[in-house]
Amino acid sequence: EITKEQQALMKLIVDAYNRHQIPQDVAKKLLQEQYSAEENFLLLTEMATSQVQVLVEFTKNIPGFLALDHEDQIALLKSSAVEAMFLRSAQVFSKKMPSGHTEVLEERIRKSGISEEFITPMFNFYKSIGELQMTQEEQALLTAITILTPDRPYVKDHQAVEKLQEPMLDVLRKLCVLQHPQEPQYFARLLGRLTELRTLNHYHSEMLSSWRMN
């Protein structure tokens, strides 16, 4: 059973997640088909910057986050930004998009100059997230849980972060049981994706340098 307090927490997180989206004019540019390699690089960079700004705005709404130590706030955001971005991008590939949009996006990423060795695990991740068919609530909570991971580098007060993450994990676990009664492993599968995300994060800086070189 989800308590009233948990309902309120969930609503807050989902509302914040939906309210803070990448501006439409930035997103629309991605679907224009004519582009050079240089334009593509600039556009994906602009998109990434916008995603980070949106992520910070979302995170400010997570109850208790702004009360954390300021440097811990930065450490958490810095180490989770890539993972949160992959999670949000995955949504684009798992949602039903207007005909042709997913293909344009996929082609743009494949032609961006990022090496194939990084592209393949990225699309594998998008596929595995797509298979889960997460609801908006699950997506938003999983993002909050990713950001509030206590064992990130340079985080000083692990306990304070854990205190914020635990209620989110609890709500998500209950939600999974309620929404997927036929799949007792669903919650574990969601958490498994977080491990996959960490691997993507690990290779991300390597991926960026190869991209810049190209």
Partner: peptide
Amino acid sequence: PASNLGLEDIIRKALMGNLEE
């Protein structure tokens, strides 16, 4: 432009709420 900033700079600016700067 923000695209010339590093990740930490973008985060710090966004946390302070002065995205326009």
